[in-house]
Design a protein around this nucleic acid. Structure first.
Lengths: 194, 194
DNA sequence: TGTCAAGTACGGCACGTGCCGTACCGATAA
DNA sequence: TTATCGGTACGGCACGTGCCGTACTTGACA
């Protein structure tokens, strides 16, 4: 079964995505070539191009293939604790190889490939955002947040600084940093402006 | 002056950076090639490679050459109003062509070119951040903010969501959005968590 | 159920193209 | 003279496509 040549369909798809992740981890996204991926997977270039229109599309599928969603998105009734669990999980994912570095490179690619940007948003960012907003909304409906609490803005304040550190300042993402953001969002910046 | 062949030094540097910005605006960063830049500038490729080690380094210099700092960073005594002016200016810069789109592409490039990332941080992000933090620090020293006000965290909350929209969700950056972030930071998320 | 022909996906190879980064050349300026 | 310049040529690499022979799948027919 393993040696049989000319396997088909999902078989090849998986082999190619696996090769993409392996090579990406070994040599980095920048040096990754479709030719090398095909060779590693024991596939022809046509087979790659038939399913993916670009290196970015291939990497996005490859990354999503190893992201198991549904882990760690609880609703215990404590909105802050639940959000902490969600965002810890997101930070862990963004940090852990091979997902983290390759995902970061994919965001980079998206900056000059609009199709990749759209796909990345629809298939990863938006669902992740939706889960957090849904949890916030539930808390608001249960009276734990004020009725005029701005869900989308809260979401941006939770996510923005994380991606800012990941993509711009390149400082490490830590759970402690997440705690500080949650503190600022829900209890304010110290006594704050006065 | 225009037709004289074999001009030297800073003359050539400026012509090459101008060609980079022109071509970048016309065809986008992804399709921009050193060869095309050299041709447009009437320069040899060697002259480009002598001064810049990569396309990213060239674009960074080109972009910085048209960013005139020192505009709109006032200290009127009103911290919120002053920050608003600063961040409006930053948003305008990030939005206005040719700077905006090319800068965005440069951040993308930085994701898989560490040297570009470092240079981008040192020569653009860090100075910008420092100005904002300095203004916040002055406000804290003057008693307008509480003594334990977290300057760096505030900076992240101000910048993060902006870059998140610019790089990830690709929604338009507006002054109104800046206002909402400032509101959240200095007056809290509605009555907020309770 | 068994056979076989048509259709499809495949691996492998070769091709032309575009851009890379380097090397060399003759011309021009300091 | 000497360093810098524009221009050109070069080898190398990866791109995306076309073609070929093979292996697998499908389904009609007996």
């Amino acid at each position: 079964m393993t040696d049989t040549p000319h396997r088909r369909g999902a078989d090849r798809t998986e082999a190619i995505m696996r090769a993409t992740l392996e090579l990406g981890q070994e040599i980095g996204y920048a040096k990754l070539s479709i030719e090398a991926v095909a060779a590693r997977a024991g596939a022809g270039k046509h087979t790659v191009y038939r399913r993916w229109s670009s290196k970015g599309a291939l990497l996005l599928d490859s990354l999503l293939s190893l992201n198991e969603p549904g882990l760690g998105y609880p609703d215990t009734g404590d909105i802050v604790a639940d959000l902490r669990v969600q965002i810890y999980a997101a930070v862990d994912l963004l940090t852990r190889p091979p997902f983290g570095p390759l995902f970061q490179a994919l965001i980079g690619e998206a900056q000059h490939a609009p199709q990749v940007a759209t796909a990345l948003n629809e298939r990863f960012i938006a669902p992740q955002t939706a889960r957090t907003v849904a949890r916030l909304e539930a808390a608001r409906d249960q009276g734990q947040l004020s009725p005029d609490f701005d869900l989308d803005l809260a979401m941006s304040i939770l996510s923005g600084p994380l991606y800012f550190q990941l993509l711009i300042t390149q400082e490490p993402l830590t759970h402690e940093y997440v705690d500080r953001i949650l503190d600022a969002l829900f209890t304010g910046m110290g006594p704050g402006h006065r």
